[in-house]
Amino acid sequence: MKHAGMTSIVQNTTRLVAGFIAVFAVYIALTGHLSPGGGFAGGVILAAAAALVLLAFGGRRTQAVLSEGTCHVVDAAGALGFVAIALGGLGAGVFFANFLPLGELHRFASGGTIALANLAILVKVGAGLVGVLLALAVYGTARYVAAERARGESPDPFLEI
């Protein structure tokens, strides 16, 4: 099929917008200690960007760019990063101690380890949710289409991704 997924209008709009959504997710996560947001909100927004790409291009083409295994690895790396920040605190006294200089209030370089921990949580939550969306799109839909074919029914062509 030439245009897997949705029409080229949706695909081109997604090409333009998805990167900005991902950058916004990182911004939301990194400024979590100054304004509403933080790592959890940023991770969910990242997953929303991935959902947009998945809906527009379909599971197969998205998986060719970003495989599920990569998501697993990045997910685990985020979790390990969070634990590493906690262990850094252990080096400075107690587990999860805020060992970096606190900095000046209301400046970006403030809050010590909070911005770093937000980044780790962004990576962890974002990669985990992107991976599960990919798995649902690929395993769920592809097998469903194949099963419908096997039963002799013609599934919705929109699903052929």
Partner: peptide, 24 residues
């Protein structure tokens, strides 16, 4: 609650996966 919302999303994904398997 902030973490609870994101956990809710993970659990929704889990339940959706179960529903897909049941349907199959």
């Amino acid at each position: 609650v902030l973490t609870s919302i994101v956990i809710g999303l993970g659990i929704t994904a889990l339940m959706v996966a179960m529903a897909i398997r049941l349907w199959e």
